[in-house]
């Protein structure tokens, strides 16, 4: 008897995700992003953010847990999951010796996008990202911002339903960062979910519908900025201070703060 899979409102669902290297990098992570949602993943260095995203993108196999992308079991059928997904790491994955247009043609070929459609989308994306004038220049002379835009165009050419980004604004100047942010915000509503890690809390605060805070490979808090502020106030007991009327930075620091060691607490007492 065929198994019935109910339709899911989630673009991304993760349950009990585990990945160990020398120590657990991701430790029983549960996370869900809704369709049309912009989800930001925050966490201190080494919290397991990039490892999580690499597992979602199919670049790394988890030791345990499940990943569903747009209802597709990404571990059972990684090729089908990759077809509806785009992955952009912090370092742009482009070829120096290809032009942006050739790069987009290559990516379109990998995702089997129909050539006429791909050519039209390429023109549209290059124009939209301000790369039209350099469309036939080799990428080797491009700045970091231009390279990131080429990578972004490559990620969008097959119209993914889930876009996964790892620190996409690292090294970008203010103008390029604003442009990339507006593209991502627009795409989140238009094509599906955007899941992004960032260390720039202001970006998460302004762009994300919901924010997940990850520490030691676990999701320790999740919600809108307001919800996180309230949660930080409750857990850290700093309502009205750092948690209540404080910024997301205060809330974040309160949430990820290490519990004081007993010896240190005794000494302080």
């Amino acid at each position: 008897m065929p198994q019935f899979t109910p339709p899911t409102p989630f673009a991304l669902e993760i349950h009990g995700l585990v990945k160990r290297f020398e120590r657990p990098a991701v430790d029983g992570l549960d996370l869900a992003a809704r369709a049309g949602e912009f989800y930001a993943l925050l966490g201190p260095n080494g919290a397991g953010k990039t490892t999580t995203l690499r597992m979602i993108a199919g670049l790394m196999r988890p030791d345990a847990g499940s990943i569903h992308v747009a209802g597709i079991d990404a571990l059972a059928d990684p090729v089908a999951a990759k077809r509806v997904m785009a992955w952009i790491p912090d370092e742009p994955m482009i070829y120096d010796k290809l032009t942006p247009r050739e790069y987009l043609a290559f990516v379109a070929g990998l995702w089997s996008v129909e050539p006429t459609l791909a050519a039209a989308r390429a023109d549209e994306l290059l124009d939209w990202l301000g790369l039209a004038a350099n469309a036939d220049d080799r990428c080797e002379s491009f700045s970091k911002g231009m390279r990131q835009k080429v990578a972004l165009a490559g990620a969008l050419i097959h119209e993914p339903r889930v876009i996964i980004l790892d620190e996409p604004l690292t090294g970008l100047d203010a103008g390029s960062a604003r442009q990339v942010k507006s593209v991502l915000r627009e795409r989140a509503g238009a094509v599906g979910a955007v899941i992004m890690t960032t260390h720039i809390l202001e970006v998460a605060e302004r762009m994300a519908d919901r924010i997940g805070v990850i520490a030691h490979g676990k999701l320790i808090a999740e919600g809108t900025v307001e919800e996180l502020r309230r949660l930080a106030g409750d857990t850290a007991g700093i309502s009205g201070g750092r948690g209540g009327g404080a910024s997301l930075e205060d809330a974040f620091l309160a949430l990820v703060a290490e519990p004081a060691a007993p010896a240190a607490e005794a000494e302080a007492a």
């Binding site: 993108a57 670049l59 089908a80 785009a86 994955m93 482009i94 070829y95 990998l110 995702w111 089997s112």
Partner: peptide
């Protein structure tokens, strides 16, 4: 030069 791109492709 773009191992992640190729690995992330379907």
């Amino acid at each position: 030069d773009a191992p992640d791109l190729v690995a992330a492709a379907p």
